[in-house]
Amino acid sequence: MKNMPKVKKMWVVLISALLMLSLVIVGCNANNKTEQSKKGKYPEKPLTMVIPFGAGGGTDQVARMLAGIMEKDFGQPIICVNKTGGAGAIGYTETANAKPDGYNIVLSTSNISTIKATGNSQLTYQDFEPIIAVNFDAPALMVKADSPYKTAKELLDYANKNPKKLNVGTGTPGGLWHVGVIKLEKEAGVQFNIVPSTTGGASASVSLLGGHVDAIVIPPNEAIAQIKSGEFRMLGTMTPERLKDFPDVPTFNEMGYNVVILSLRGYLAPKGTPAEVVKVLHDHLKKAMENEKYINYMKDQVSNIIYMDSAKYKEYLAKEYESYTKLIEEAGLAKK
């Protein structure tokens, strides 16, 4: 009890010290603000770029690369933030709820068109202002070089005669690559034994390398080392047109199966972000996309650059949402 008065006195001192400190800091800050508002033009503070997936993944690399290039001309720092969870839902929610002032954007994937159907979130593209589309990946059917199947037809013929005999590995369950395999089964009228891998496409390629599955369906960029060294053979891609880097590999579309699966990446801003700010962001991002570094990176990754402006991207998202929702229902992966 003896301590009581002392403690009280300390409180007074502490609080007054804190007040003084905060006054000083506020003072400094106020100076800063007036300086900045003189310019009075967007951008006048750092831009937050939300990455709805983990550090080190494909989406993360694309975002950080573009941010790095764009920062040089943007005039303000760009802060990349990984907000992971719920198949991207947490990152999307964060941006959807942010102030629509142009300082919050998210690098979206085609998950934006599936999270509602799979029950991860209620958000759709309609809760955002699309800015620009930057790249896409599409899955391909691959086998090991020593596999007996030289063409997709041979493999599908075998599967047709031997239902559930072929083990086909793919990415995360319920993800787009998985949906692609199911769609292929339906279109070709065959049954595989599908083995999804919980940690994504890269581990599916490890299973194929180890001979634990007969074929895999993942995008080429998750198995580049093996494709380039000739250990894997691509039998068909799920793109609308043949890949530039692999002109000999046919698409399933031209084989007569209507299987087109694309995961498109692009930037979204919260609903209500002013059009002129979206324009500024679009122009900066477009310039970053044209940078040699980005082009080379995409080439090395066997990934694909695609450019869509805000209006086109929005149109695309509307179509994508409709078709993927149907796909997921067909595949039996929809929740309620």
Partner: peptide, 20 residues
């Protein structure tokens, strides 16, 4: 969180932060 094999929600009690 999300079941790694089927993708259904397990023990998430409708909390988005528990999904993963």
């Amino acid at each position: 969180g999300m079941d790694p094999i089927t993708g259904i929600q397990r023990f998430t009690f409708n909390e988005m932060n528990l999904q993963t």
